[in-house]
Computed example of a mutant assay.
Amino acid sequence: MPKVVDRTQRRDALAAALWRLAYREGWNAVSLRRVAAEAGLSLGSLQHYFAGLDDLLDYSVSGVLDILDERLVDQLTTLAEPADAESTVREALQGMIPGAVVDPAAERPDDSWRIQVMAWLAVVNRAARNPEMSARLSAGSDRLAAAIAAALCTSAIGRSREEALREARGLLALVEGLLLQLARGSIEPGEASSVISGFVARVFG
């Protein structure tokens, strides 16, 4: 009896193989044949799941967007009723930096954050040419900025909604700039986390 393969699971495994290959060898090394080999499949098997490299890229990027959406929901839930507005905003922003939160139970440092940063850059690049992806990113950013602004307003008497929203957008821009520096290798996640902590303290101060 032929083995039953879960289609979504196999497509996810191929997307994961694409990210590993792109991180390890660069985007110029990415091809359907190389991704198939990375996943331990033949090219013919891969083509049962994706029509071409663009199809695979779109699926891989959409998966990252789904993860970002899930993270956004968690952030918005946390920011809805902050016990301490400053620490809540700080932790929400630091959570946007891959690798900023280290698992104390890990036997050795995990550098998977590098793949996550690369995937984020790929999403931004793809979204620049895809209106639907761009709209998803923009909507998420707007919702998060509004939630951060609301937290700011609860902690600063006399601060207008417009001022708080301006500060919130500035903090999000800071995070995006730090992600670019991480991608270039200019800083490490821990340093990025410290920068966020300092700027959040200034905004709340």
Rank of each mutant, 00 (worst) to 15 (best):
V124R: 15
A16Q: 13
T88K: 04
A16D: 13
T154V: 12
R114D: 01
L180E: 11
R24D: 14
L172C: 04
W113V: 04
G158R: 05
K3Y: 10
A13I: 04
F50L: 04
P82R: 08
A22H: 05
V200G: 02
A119C: 01
I187P: 07
N125H: 14
D142H: 12
A192H: 02
M118P: 00
S186E: 13
R33F: 07
E132C: 00
P104A: 10
L43E: 14
A168V: 10
E162M: 03
A127M: 06
A29M: 11
A106T: 04
I148P: 08
W113S: 04
L72R: 14
L144W: 08
T77Y: 09
A164Q: 04
S45E: 11
G52A: 13
D110Y: 03
L174S: 14
V35S: 03
R126N: 10
A201S: 15
A15R: 05
D54V: 11
E162N: 02
D103K: 00
L174Q: 08
Y49D: 10
E162C: 01
Y23R: 14
V64R: 15
V30N: 03
R202H: 09
V123F: 07
V4N: 10
G205C: 09
P189H: 05
Q94L: 08
A39Q: 05
L137A: 12
V89Q: 07
A150V: 07
A51R: 15
L32W: 02
A83N: 12
L46H: 07
D69K: 12
V101T: 13
A92I: 00
V64M: 13
A173D: 15
V124C: 10
E167W: 13
L180R: 15
A156S: 11
G26Y: 00
S62L: 14
R11K: 15
R159W: 09
G185Q: 01
A13W: 06
A183R: 09
G185F: 01
Q94N: 00
S31L: 09
A150I: 01
M1A: 14
R143T: 09
G63W: 06
L93C: 01
G44I: 11
G95K: 02
V175C: 12
E91D: 13
L144M: 15
G140N: 10
E81Y: 09
Y23C: 10
L68E: 07
L41I: 09
A149E: 05
R34I: 05
E132S: 12
L72Y: 04
L18P: 00
D58E: 15
S155P: 04
K3Q: 14
T77N: 11
A80P: 00
G185N: 06
V35G: 06
T77R: 15
L172K: 07
W27F: 09
A13V: 02
L165G: 02
A105P: 03
M1N: 10
G205D: 14
A15L: 01
A51M: 10
V175L: 10
G44Y: 08
